[in-house]
Design a protein around this nucleic acid. Structure first.
Lengths: 213, 213, 213, 213
DNA sequence: TATGAATGAGACTTCATTCAT
DNA sequence: AATGAATGAAGTCTCATTCAT
């Protein structure tokens, strides 16, 4: 628990120093598990394997540390590239995106960031807003852009692609995500997710697909 | 300055004494506004107009008080009777239910219970589970029952009414509820809600309505 | 250490409750001995024989507690009535007042309030100002009023009684108070004080007394 | 970003190295502005333009650094040579010394050393004692020596020159220094100082000047 | 010598809970 | 039943000091 540092070949002044990363990792776990208020700086220090004082070397206070966690969470989520290759056919894209999206959301810990940020959004509106815009909305936008292309190609007839994107994503969650996040069910199986996504896909196509011929 | 209460010869001992109701009312406001951790027993006592000590006469500790609040919140929400009169035609029912449901969710303070319970669900799984089952799921079930009747009447063709109910409710939230609860937008206007609900209604009917003829 | 309270026949809501007095007494000692920053709330609690939490029941924070101490110190000092009976002859009044004043200032702990308040005056200017005006200046004013009467009676010729009062009080300190407060000497003996006061008195009379005849 | 110092081949080891002076300068400002407890080693390091670690290369701990500051302050004050040229006539010398002395004491920051040392004198009696003896007392002694000469010359009749010197210096402060240091007034104007010094001078001469003829 | 990352003790403060009345 | 005074554990944050480089 101490040895880890001996390799520490000092890259000081580094924006993403080892210690900083270490702290972010530990803090992320604790914040996501216990929420902003439930997480104590002592607990975070222990989880990160550093002293309490060290936390304050890297982050001005608990709020700032939390904001950094959320920021990092957003970056991590933006790295998750769903396959919106314009060349793929729409049904396949919907099915695969839907599946991947819900698997992500309902994996253990998958809803933690959403839950944690949502919980604090009333007291820290900026954090809530940024998180929504950078995380959830970005995905909606990418998906909407994909749909737009297929509207241009006359394969889909969608009056409002943003809304349609959001509708699909919401439908995919039906009966799964809320149950999961409220701890009313264990994470759903991939098979169950596939069923729900399949249903959503059909509804989406029934509503928006241009009839052939 | 002390005597005021000595006359207080109200009949006590009944389950839902005045004091108990008073406490629940005050605590509800404070818990919903500040979250479980953000709410202090002192603040609650002040909001309820009783002394801190009195809180402990009626509730063993903060957790129990919170559980009672959530329980009451569930009862309150169950009293909200959406109009699922089996005789009404489906499109109208969908539109009116969708509108009422989202208005409720997105009114100021409307997401507070959901937010607050969701936030604590990881630490208090039982509370989360019960809240989901008694609140959200009950609405889904009532709505599903309505749909089921119209399936029986061969107006709708729905393989899984629970799922369909959930799908509709999720779609109605599209682009509205998450933006609202993450403080990314002010509460949506009734007109905007109507548009989104209308779109959801059409998708629902396109997918599940038995074609006439 | 606990028994003291059993007699405590509850005088609640009392501005000057026993506990409050107890705290002020303990805090006064600690603040005066160690200064504002040197005094810790823990130490104060111990000195007062109450828990740390109790301090915050009576005083919002450390600053407010300190201000209350200073306020009380001012009240205590205002109770010290030097004998400015207008009927007494001037030389006697000067000698007795000078002696009493310096004895007070140079008794063990006599300079503590002055030292402590002076030390914090840059960071808490209001406290410094009030202390000066309510403590030191009040004495100057009373003394000046006495002098003014004897000016009216043509016994003294003083162009500025305020200044004259201050001059006398300053002179009485000569070689005594600064040495004492800087810990350069033990408290001066009454005999030594008498000498210095005698000298100050003569200078004062030499300058301001109306020559007989 | 690290290399900058490696060229630094300045000759080290001399008692008053550049760095040491640099530290003393920075520390002096911070200690005088914030007091012993209010000053933090970090702030001092920043003010001195060195790292926190370096402070400990030159000074064993915060106390020792503070003592060094006070020591230096004393040296600086001893350099302030008031004009006690034995040849100058007494009234002029009194007026000019008095004016210069009070201007010094009441200039912005002028009371800082006195205030800071006085504040800590109870906890660090040695520091207080040394400061008094080396700073204030030295000035008294020089002034007393001047007076002594004029006693020898039969221009003044003073039984105790030390006391007389102190009396004059105290009188010059009358109504000015305490008001200033307790933040009860802004620094007095030169004109006001001149008035008070003039009054002190007259009293001094009235008491101690040998009557001509 | 000089650095600055790291520490841990301790400061102020809050708050859930208890208890005598 | 109701109070509110009192508590002490625990939380956030600061800071003098150390140490590897």
């Amino acid at each position: 628990m101490v040895a880890a540092n001996s390799i520490n070949t000092v890259v000081l002044g580094d924006e993403d120093s080892t210690k900083r990363q270490q702290i972010l990792a530990g803090a992320s776990k604790v914040f996501m598990d216990l929420g902003f208020d439930g997480a104590s700086m002592g607990e975070i220090a222990r989880a990160a394997g550093v002293s309490k004082g060290t936390l304050y070397v890297y982050f001005a206070d608990k709020n700032r540390l939390f904001e950094a966690i959320v920021e990092q969470e957003m970056l991590d989520q933006q790295k998750i590239a769903f396959n919106f290759d314009p060349g793929r056919d729409v049904p396949t894209t919907l099915r695969e995106f839907g599946q991947a999206y819900i698997e992500l959301l309902c994996r253990p810990g998958g809803g933690s960031a959403i839950r944690t940020v949502m919980a604090i959004a009333e007291r820290m509106p900026e954090v809530g807003r940024r998180y929504y815009e950078q995380s959830l909305e970005k995905t909606i936008n990418r998906f909407a852009a994909y749909l737009e292309m297929h509207v241009q190609a006359s394969e889909l007839a969608i009056p409002d692609c943003q809304l349609a994107a959001s509708q699909f994503m919401q439908m995919c969650q039906a009966s799964l995500f809320l149950r999961f996040i409220f701890q009313a069910s264990p994470p759903p199986s991939s098979a169950r997710i596939a069923e729900v996504v399949e249903s959503a896909t059909r509804m989406f196509l029934a509503a928006y697909q241009v009839k052939a011929g």
